[in-house]
Each structure stands twice: as structure tokens, then as C-alpha cells.
Design a protein around this nucleic acid. Sequence first.
RNA 1: GCACCCGUAGCUCAGCUGGAUAGAGCGCCGCCCUCCGAAGGCGGAGGCCAUAGGUUCGAAUCCUAUCGGGUGCGCCA
Length: 577
Amino acid sequence: MNLFADIRSLVIDCLDALAAEGQLPAGLDHANVSVEPPRDPAHGDMATNAAMVLAKPAGLKPRDIAEALAGTLAADPRIAQAEVAGPGFLNMRLAAPVWHDVIRAALTDPRYGRSDLGQGQSVNVEYVSANPTGPLHVGHTRGAVFGDALASLLDYAGFEVTREYYINDGGAQVDVLARSVYLRYLEAHGQEVAFEDGTYPGDYLIAVGEALRDEVGDAYVGKGEEVWLDAVRSFATEKMMAMIRDDLAALGVEMDVFYSEKSLYGTGRIEAAIEDLRAKGLIYRGTLAPPKGKLPEDWEPREQTLFKSTDYGDDVDRPIMKSDGGWTYFAPDIAYHHDKVSRGFDALIDVFGADHGGYVKRMKAAVAALSGETVPLDVKLTQLVKLYRNGEPFKMSKRAGTFVTLRDVVEAVGRDVARFHMLTRKNDAPLDFDFDKVTEQSKDNPVFYVQYAHARVHSVLRKADVDVSPAALAQADLSGLAHPAELALAAKLAEWPRLVEIAARTHEPHRIAFYLYDLASELHALWNRGNDDPALRFLQEGDSAATQAKIALIRAVSVVISHGLGILGVTPVEEMR
RNA sequence: GCACCCGUAGCUCAGCUGGAUAGAGCGCCGCCCUCCGAAGGCGGAGGCCAUAGGUUCGAAUCCUAUCGGGUGCGCCA
């Protein structure tokens, strides 16, 4: 059940009826007709812009259309009142039974809030995709939480979702990893080693070096790279990926596919992807113009193998091959996306850190070219996480011992807090993360605030001496739920399906978090009104019918909160501790 | 120099395919527990939606220009 969609259909039906009667021209386009909650509750429960949108094409005055529409709408039992306001808005007040239906739907329909927006279309969501050269840090944590919540949201909205991680195990950085592990390996054999520039000195490789020693003994000691590089690289990469998987698991993130960049090399897949583009006339030898403004010091004109990404909206064409004949990093990226396209996804989403913003256009160009512009690619960038402790900002620094890993975050504040808090900002806005504030149990902390609302409802359920099962509550007589404050809360529940669709369409899971905050806020407000007005208390002594009706309302709220938190990957707790 | 993102209350930020008098939290001022969890709620003060044009019935939202901040910019991934 999606009340806004239902009422919109009703409006459209009424418009059609008016057209049939000749009061409106036939064949008007209804695409821009919307039904939304008015900003000001005094304007009613729902408002439609139909009259204003149709005035021009119909050649009529907006208020005349609105008047006619109001008359037709009023015949429907769901509409308690319809009146024209302002320049031609039509404000509607809905009958109480409509809100009661919303409550029943939330209680009993396991699909309440789910949507068929996706219509089973398959979407690939690629996120995290960190280099397998070290532990995930806070920045990756945000990408992981965002990508995961987005994937869940799309699933909830009716898409077939694949969660995917691209392992950058094909470039020079994994050679550096291998050499660094080799040094730790020598160390494990009691040798004194020096970590020069261009190696990773992190402690986390000590155990990897020891593990390598345990596995191969002294077979590589004193040997040249040609003997051990390949083997150590795969050994090290595997260890790093095992660690990364563990870290993701601690955050509650589980990927469907780990896709190896290395698997693209030596298998003809890069060549095949490039051939695909070449066949479309998009690969050529050429020289790029120098960038305007300050010239790089070593700049000289150079002929390169280029992808004509400018045909698809990029600013300049992009090199795909290095002068030594090797591929640039862009080539395997093309091949990877070629593979995604050929796996038949209807849409692709990449989640990158904001520092990769410069690659968006070329990736979109590549996917557009590879798919013949049939598969949309949306790239979501996640901004920086600014770290605080006790209100004092601090920067990540390995040297100062303030390098904050994903695991540190989860261990310090817990999975639920980390996940929810990362979604309290839009993905492209910077985020403050204060280790002390996010665990504070007060209304200043949105995570707590929402969980508290859920726990409060369950506290009432425990105290109630009526049957509080959703099935029983849905059978209850809800006609006593008539107070505006109660119906307003039900109206908030009615927004849930609509909000899911907006969030899914815009690929913005933070909207779920903000909605839950609002919903929690309205629940707390109603709760407190019981202080002044005993008739609004949820437990009505000696009146089990009224009690059941009120509990139906707040239990429906808790159900929606738990669905919403589920999308965010946060546990809806039934008791605060 | 170019591209992308951002600019909304003192601070941190929401704001739907363009809708009515622009919202929340913090901070400030004043209130509310004989009552289901006060771990909460209610009220008040606080705005030229960076600036200037444009599009239209209507713009914080779309377009153009300018200013300010962030990120990136040919063989690093």
C-alpha cells in the first residue's frame, strides 16, 4: 500500500472523468501531476498541483479546474474534504479510516514500504574496492556503509542487487606490497631490514611475513625477485583480502562478488574490451594538447593510444596505453566495466571516494560506449570523514599513531552507531565523526534517538495486558483513533513507501535515516502529550479496546522503524542499556 | 586555466520530478515528571537560501555569469 500513489491514481481517475464529461480537453498529459504532503499541516493531508499543471494545456483557469476536480474527488469516501487554495492548489483532508488502513498495512503486510520501482531490474553496486595493500580506514568505512545501505535500499525498492568489490590486485602497488612483505619475511628469519621509500612499513605486515616464513621456510631468503615476486604477491594479496573481508564482516558488510583486476590480465579480456571500442572507431593514436594554465615541468608532446571519451561527454580523450606498451590503469577499468555490461546488468553504480571525482566522466563515457548507451552508470562520491575526539579534531597519521582503521571504529563505537552515523549526512557532504559524541545516549545523538523510540514502544508492549501481536492489533477496532495527534503519526507512516521510492530513485540512503529521525520525533512528541492529556496515553486503564487501538498505532511505528533500520544495517533494539 | 562537488539561522546540516508563510539539531531564553522509560517533550528569539541576471502561473531547487571553499587535471592505481 502506498497512499500517495493511491490518491494520485484517484486524482488521475477524476481528471479522466472530467475529460469524459467534456469539462476538460481529452488526452491531457498527466505526467507532471503530483500528490504530496503539504509543508504546512494546516493545508490538509495531501495537496495536488493538477489544476496548475493542466491550466495551460487545457486553456482554462487553474482555479476553475481545481473547483471541478474538488467536486469529483469529494465523491470518494477516502476524501473528507477537498478545497481550493492559493494559486490553484487542491488541498485534501482524508477520512480517518484511511489512516487506520495505513496502520493495518504496516502491521500485517510484510511488504509495506517495499516498492516495485525496480521491477526486478538488475543493478550492480560496486563499493569499497580498496587496494589490497593494507587495512580499511575510516574513509573506506563511509564508502562501505553508504554502498551497503544503497544496495539494501535498492533491493527494498524492487531491484535485483549485486554487491561487488573490485580488487585492485593488478597494478604496481601490489608489487610494492610483495616487496614489503618480503622484508617482513626476512625479518621473521632474524634479519635486520630497512624500509625504504616505496615500501609499506605498516606493522600489520609483520604477521604476514611470519606466515610466509611458516609456509615456505627459508626458500626465498637471499633470492632475487624473479624467484619470489609472483608467489609473494599472491600470498600477500590473499592475506590482505582475508583481513579486509574480516573488517567488512565486522561492519556487517557482505559482498556477493569479489572481482579481481589481475584476472583481466593475460586472459585477453582487456584486449577484447579495447577491441570492442576500436570496432566502434573510438580508439586512435594521437597527441593530447597540454593542459591550460601551469604546465607540468616535464611536459612534452607525446603520441599515445587514446580512447575517444569526448564523444561521450568527457573533457579530453584518455590514454589507455603507456609508452612502454603496458596498459594504463584505465584500460583494466574499461575491461572491468565491459564485463559488468556483458553480465547483463540493467544499471551500474560505482561508489568512489571524492578524490576520484576526476574519473567520473571517463568511466561514464566508457560505459556509454561499451553498452551503446543502454546501461546507465551512476557514480556516487563519498566525501571526507573528519575525526574528532572530545570535540577536538585530529588528523589521521600513521606516524602519530592516529591512523584510524575501520576496525578501530567498529570496536570503539559498535557497528550500529558507526553505520547510522555515517548516514546522517548526504554522501557528497563532509561528515564529522566524534568518537565521544556518537556514543552519547541523549537526544543530541540521532542513532540513540531513533533506537530509543523503538525501545520505548517495546517497553509499552511489555507492560500492556492486551494481545499485542500484529495480527491481533490489525483486527482491533481502530475507530477510536481519531485525535489529530494520533492521525498525524499515522500520516507519517503513510509517507514511508513514498520516501523509499524517492530515496531509491535518487540513490540517497541518507533520506531513510532522516525520515526515521522524524518518525521517532513524532512518536516522542505524542508520548509526551500523554503527560498533559491522559486520553492520549497508550495504556488506557480498564479499556482494552482503546488500549489495543493505540498500541496498534505505535507498534506500526516500531515496525516501520525496524524496516528502516534494517535497510541501514542497524539493529532495532527493544531495550536500551 | 579547465572540470566536478559545495555555498541555506551564530554553529552543524536537511529540503521531494520546481509548489503555498524555507525546516531540524546544537547553542541562547522560558516552561513540563502524583503519568506507559524526562535517555523525553513544549514554547520563544534567530534567514536577502553567496551575488546578479534569466526561464514561468510559481525558483533554495532549472539556466547563465560572478564571488568564495573543496577535489581532481597526459605513461600513479
